[in-house]
Amino acid sequence: MNLDEFFRASSTLNPKLTLLISEGQHFLPVNQLLIDKNSLLLGKSSPSQGGFATITLDQFMTRTKRLSLKTDLRTLNDRQLIFGFRIVNKSIVFY
């Protein structure tokens, strides 16, 4: 999935939905965005005392609006291409 596909698929969704990554049987909060060549890597920062907030759809759109629409979405830990998402409760879960 690239940014253009994600923007079009999520354009009518609630901007306050949080972003999660499906990892095995668990959902991990997306709170780290890194650019690597033609890819945007979605990940979770290592925990600290204060913890890290999960990025909302609105925050994601704001932070990525200047990137090329052809930018691939990938997971940070294994750089696997994200193929889609689903809505679970009040979150967008990438898989």
Results as ranks from 00 to 15, higher is better:
41 L>W: 01
13 L>N: 11
61 M>W: 11
68 S>Q: 07
8 R>D: 12
34 L>T: 08
39 S>V: 06
43 G>E: 06
37 K>F: 12
23 E>Y: 06
6 F>T: 00
17 L>V: 01
3 L>E: 09
40 L>P: 04
32 Q>C: 09
5 E>C: 07
25 Q>H: 06
2 N>H: 08
17 L>Y: 09
3 L>R: 01
40 L>N: 12
50 G>F: 15
45 S>G: 01
62 T>N: 14
76 L>P: 00
3 L>D: 07
75 T>F: 06
39 S>C: 14
93 V>M: 05
25 Q>N: 12
32 Q>M: 08
11 S>R: 11
53 A>P: 11
81 L>K: 14
71 T>F: 04
7 F>Q: 08
33 L>W: 03
13 L>Y: 12
89 N>S: 08
37 K>Y: 14
42 L>H: 02
13 L>A: 08
84 G>H: 07
79 R>M: 01
76 L>F: 05
85 F>S: 08
80 Q>A: 10
29 P>E: 03
24 G>I: 04
58 D>C: 12
10 S>N: 08
90 K>I: 10
82 I>S: 03
27 F>K: 12
43 G>P: 02
90 K>T: 14
76 L>S: 13
42 L>G: 00
88 V>F: 03
12 T>L: 14
91 S>R: 11
38 N>C: 11
49 Q>H: 14
3 L>T: 11
20 L>R: 06
42 L>Q: 00
53 A>S: 13
90 K>Y: 06
63 R>Y: 06
2 N>V: 11
18 T>G: 11
93 V>P: 01
24 G>M: 01
34 L>E: 14
77 N>Q: 05
48 S>H: 13
76 L>G: 04
79 R>N: 08
3 L>A: 14
76 L>E: 01
65 K>D: 12
51 G>Y: 09
35 I>C: 09
53 A>D: 15
66 R>V: 02
28 L>G: 01
2 N>D: 15
19 L>H: 05
11 S>P: 03
66 R>K: 15
7 F>I: 14
6 F>Q: 05
51 G>A: 02
29 P>H: 03
62 T>L: 15
4 D>A: 14
14 N>V: 11
42 L>P: 04
